[in-house]
Design a protein around this nucleic acid. Structure first.
Length: 568
RNA sequence: CGGGGCGUAGCGCAGCCUGGUAGCGUACUUGCAUGGGGUGCAAGGGGUCGCAAGUUCAAAUCUUGCCGUCCCGACCA
């Protein structure tokens, strides 16, 4: 590509709408333009990147035996009512009407459409297993779009759906897809991690997320450096560091805490570690009042709470409700001597604590030396309701957990029969009997990957694209292209040679000053640069510099092609 | 949806408090110079000051309402 015939428009300053580094760089490099909240045009430069990601995803899907198809983006309401998700997805779904006043949505995902297809087209066990995929624009009316293409409302997704006669077959394809996803992210040159995950709104059983590791990621991940355990913090099991509760050594006693309402403050006042304290969180669900107990330094995991029987639709109690049930304002509440109507749920770690400090249900007082069995009954429910922290035991018993942050770019699910059952997707088995299909589904956020990659690869000069997704592999920067016939001739010659070798090359033939060319090439993240100038040509040399190299190296004019081939 | 910003030229901003000729940087156009890190000088083009009502002789500026957009929380590829 010759720069004079392309559309480059880089900017020195990023629009104030962008906060995140990858978003700013995408706007500055001219990869994308915003049309509205969460809506972006992929400019020619950005689209080259997106297409490269897409191509790798396609190749790996095809290698994994998946078959590409393309479903409509617009879907009829009736299908969504069959699975009950017209209501479940709610306002996150963009709902539209046609001229006959019939309801449709712009697809946020395609389980319903593909399951409808499967029930119509798949008749026999002989046709299974099957795995269909598409690369398509999705629309989700996010509560808060942000971070540019990382959480856009309209975005490009690869979604695959597999159909099986039985769980074993599903597990095989799931494993194949797990490997295919690992291949995709490896080939893309990203630092990533696969973690066990919660299934969320999609539903189903087994599930893994693939995360690009980045400090700005929205998800917290827990992993064990000495084993292969890794899980989203939403799911990672929080275990106590001790298995047996130590014996009580203190008598329960009141301590005055006039202004101390948080565990940190109370611990500071008493001169003890915050891990000796217990905090009480009041919830209401189905008209019942719950008191959840967490160690002072731990935080509540609302997803885990929602999985406890009776707490599916919980909400935090209001101040009035807390006063009504505990006869005490928030800040001093605790589990000791509470009414029968208060249901105590203790985190597993709290359940093995002794001699702890908690609220006294009396304004300006806490209790110390509190012990289960003696000062209060054993908790009715003991469950894992907290977020894991660094140093927790790994659930596989092979070490301790570390935390990091990630950007979710892929998610695979064993859906089992959730959709097939609801929509009666059946096949005939060897005995001519109708059977419900087993299903899997597998998503990759193609457009999100571009943002995530930039989040992982950038410096003060701009984007550092992995070679696999850079808009151009090589940039040629001729100094004085419009002035020196010699420079022009050599630049065009190299350009032609590289093109013939199939290299994606950008020739800056605009006659720009070197500073401009260098700054733009670096901002755009082009991995390799060749500088051709009269100065070097006198010695029959040019300069080569990799995007992350500290300085340029002089290369003989006759050697530059092989030099490039060695680094590409 | 709750909390907090911001809307003035393509982009970044000043002007608003204290009403009276719409400004700066950059980008763009042209000329000259320059030619190895967003070069210099000069001359240009480009704005219904988010929208609508109101106050006023007069509104970018004051008042009210609306809209858009970004940031912090709950949703997700």
């Amino acid at each position: 590509m010759r720069a004079s015939r392309f559309f480059l428009n880089t900017q020195k300053e990023a629009p104030q709408e962008a906060e995140l580094i990858s978003h700013r760089l995408m706007l500055r490099a001219g990869l994308i333009k915003r049309l509205g909240s969460g809506l972006y045009t992929w400019m020619p430069l950005g689209l080259r990147v997106l297409r490269k990601v897409e191509a790798i995803v396609r190749e790996e899907m095809n290698n994994a035996g998946a078959l590409e198809l393309l479903m409509p983006a617009v879907q009829p309401k009736e299908l969504w009512e069959e699975t009950g998700r017209w209501a479940v997805f709610g306002p996150q779904m963009l709902k539209i009407k046609d001229r006959h006043d019939r309801d449709f949505c712009f697809g946020p995902t395609h389980e319903e459409v593909i399951t409808d297809l499967a029930r119509r087209e798949i008749k026999s066990y002989k046709q299974l297993p099957l795995n269909f995929y598409q690369v398509q624009t999705k629309f989700r009316d996010e509560i808060r779009p942000r971070f540019g293409v990382m959480r856009a409302r309209e975005f490009l997704m690869k979604d695959a759906y597999s159909f099986h006669t039985d769980l074993t077959s599903l597990e095989q394809t799931y494993e194949t897809m797990y490997q295919a996803y690992s291949n995709v992210f490896t080939r893309l040159g990203l630092k990533f991690r696969a973690v066990r995950a919660d299934t969320g709104a999609i539903g189903g059983d087994g599930s893994h997320e693939f995360h690009v590791l980045a400090d700005s990621g929205e998800d917290a991940l827990a992993y064990c450096p000495t084993s292969d355990y890794a899980a989203n913090v939403e799911l990672a099991e929080g275990l106590p560091t001790v298995s047996v509760r130590p014996a009580a050594t203190e008598a329960m006693h009141e301590v005055e805490t006039p202004k101390q309402t948080t565990c940190e403050q109370v611990a500071a006042l008493l001169g003890i570690d915050v891990t000796r304290t217990v905090k009480s969180i009041a919830l209401v669900a189905n008209g019942k009042f719950y008191l959840l107990l967490l160690r002072g330094d731990h935080s509540l995991n609302e997803i885990k709470v929602g999985k406890i029987d009776g707490l599916q639709d919980f909400r935090f109690a209001s101040e009035e409700e807390i006063r009504t049930h505990l006869n005490c304002p928030p800040g001093f509440i605790g589990p000791v001597a509470v009414s029968q109507n208060v249901i105590i749920v203790a985190d597993k770690t709290v359940a093995v604590m002794s001699d702890f400090v908690c609220g006294a249900n009396k304004p300006k007082y806490h209790l110390a030396g509190v012990n289960f069995g003696r000062d209060l009954p054993e908790a009715l429910v003991v469950a894992d309701i907290r977020n894991v922290v660094t140093g927790d035991p790994s659930p596989d018993g092979k070490g301790t957990l570390e935390l990091c942050r990630g950007i979710e770019v892929g998610h695979i699910f064993q859906l089992r029969t959730k959709y097939a059952q609801a929509m009666e997707a059946t096949y005939l088995d060897e005995n001519g009997q109708k059977q419900i299909m087993e299903m899997g589904c597998y998503g990759i956020g193609v457009s999100r990957i571009v943002g995530a990659a930039i989040e992982q690869g950038n410096d003060e000069r701009g984007i550092i694209f992995p070679a696999s997704m850079a808009p151009f592999q090589v940039a040629i920067a001729p100094i004085g292209f419009d002035k020196s016939e010699e420079v022009k001739a050599e630049a065009l010659h190299l350009y032609k040679q590289l093109q013939e070798l199939g290299v994606d090359v950008l020739l800056d033939d605009r006659g720009e000053r070197p500073g401009v060319m260098f700054a733009e090439m670096e901002l755009m993240g082009i991995p390799h640069r060749v500088v051709i100038g009269e100065r070097g040509l006198k010695e029959s040399t040019v300069e080569y510099q990799g995007r992350t190299d500290a300085s340029a190296q002089t290369v003989g004019l006759k050697d530059i092609v092989s030099k490039l081939q060695s680094v590409l």
